[in-house]
Design a protein around this nucleic acid. Structure first.
Length: 327
DNA sequence: GGACTTTGACCACTG
DNA sequence: GCAGTGGTCAAAGTC
């Protein structure tokens, strides 16, 4: 795999394994923390009613305070996401340019039935319902990622691509054939959203929504829902490059079961680097890596990867809940 | 005439 | 129950 740091001519390999999913200390789940809080509250019984009232008021104030803090964190995450899209316009999913491939049979399309089937597929619990639309993290890929539950969810991925601001066409070339079936102006974005259905195979359930980013009109955001049940058509010129190639930096972030890994791909700029120019290229890359711009972008990508990781956000929520009783 | 796009209307969901 | 919204349909228009 050429994604890893290769060569290392004068450069120390950089492979940051953040292991977000594994908390160093045992973190209670949000539900557990909540239960502990409720236990504490209930164990306050026995005192007189005035004490309990005061205690309740104090706790209420603290809950309000924590809610405010939680809201600020949410805003921060949202801001980070917006910044990332506007900056590099890369495939935030870090998935290969073609949308998800594996077969997902029995997903029907059609008026309302499509949504109903989607709900069925996502019918694990109420919170999972409509998560396709409500997720605001940088990476919505693979909501169906195996979380140990038996529920099946529609695979969703998001691709951002920078375009000419004067280009009004809502077209994101990805090698597949798409048939437009609708366009709508949504509330949160003045630019219209186009709805596409995979036209390569009549039975293919994949749908695509394309809309300009609300933050940066030069960025097209394509959201893929579902998985193709047919092979990928032959790629054409102008198709989406791989995420690493699309990025202006030789950097990619992948998230797997062991946590996010940031990889610097030194094979960029030509795939097979000639031996004669390898050293010069390496110096150039090292200079780029050492630059403040690179570090800044790297930090943003790391932050984005963290905030898009449900394990991280879950751990964050758990940590907040854990802090609650300490106030 | 067929394939595709546009666009107004309809429907289900949500608060 | 109602209004707002997103998603989809389908007729009409275009290529």
């Amino acid at each position: 795999m050429d994604a890893a740091w290769r060569g290392g001519v004068g450069c120390a390999p950089v492979c940051l394994d953040l292991c977000v999913g594994r908390s160093p200390v045992r973190e209670p789940s949000p539900a557990t923390a909540r239960h502990e809080l409720l236990d504490r509250l209930s164990s306050c019984g026995g005192g007189d009613s005035t004490m309990m009232t005061n205690e309740a008021k104090i706790l209420e104030a603290k809950v309000t305070q924590m809610s405010e803090e939680n809201r600020r964190l949410t805003e921060m995450i949202t801001r980070l996401y917006g910044t990332q899209i506007a900056r590099n316009g890369i495939d935030s999913t870090n998935s290969p340019s073609p949308p998800p491939r594996p077969v997902s049979p029995s997903l029907t399309t059609g008026k309302k039935r499509g949504r109903e089937s989607m709900d069925t597929a996502n019918s694990c619990d109420a919170n999972n319902n409509n998560n396709n639309q409500k997720i605001t993290g940088a990476d919505a890929e693979s909501f169906g990622v195996d979380d140990g539950t038996a529920c099946r969810r529609i695979k969703v991925s998001r691709v951002c691509r920078r375009i000419d601001p004067s280009d009004t066409t809502l077209v994101v070339k990805d090698g597949y054939q798409w048939r437009k079936y609708g366009q709508k102006v949504t509330r949160d974005n003045p630019s219209p959203r186009a709805y596409f259905r995979c036209a390569f195979a009549p039975s293919c359930p994949v749908k695509k929504k394309v809309q300009r980013s609300a933050d940066d009109s030069s960025v097209l955001v394509a959201t893929y829902e579902g998985e193709h049940n047919h092979p990928h058509p032959s790629p054409r010129a102008g198709d989406l490059p791989s995420p690493a190639a699309a990025a202006s930096l030789p950097c990619s972030i992948s998230i797997n079961s062991s946590g996010p890994t940031i990889t610097l791909d030194l094979t960029k700029n030509g795939g097979g680097v000639q031996a004669a120019t390898a050293a010069a290229d390496m110096k150039e890359v090292c200079r780029e890596v050492a630059s403040p711009e690179f570090r800044s972008a790297l930090v943003e990508q790391m932050a984005s990867a963290l905030t898009s990781d449900p394990k991280f956000t879950g751990a964050l929520a758990a940590a907040i809940m854990q802090k609650l009783p300490e106030f």
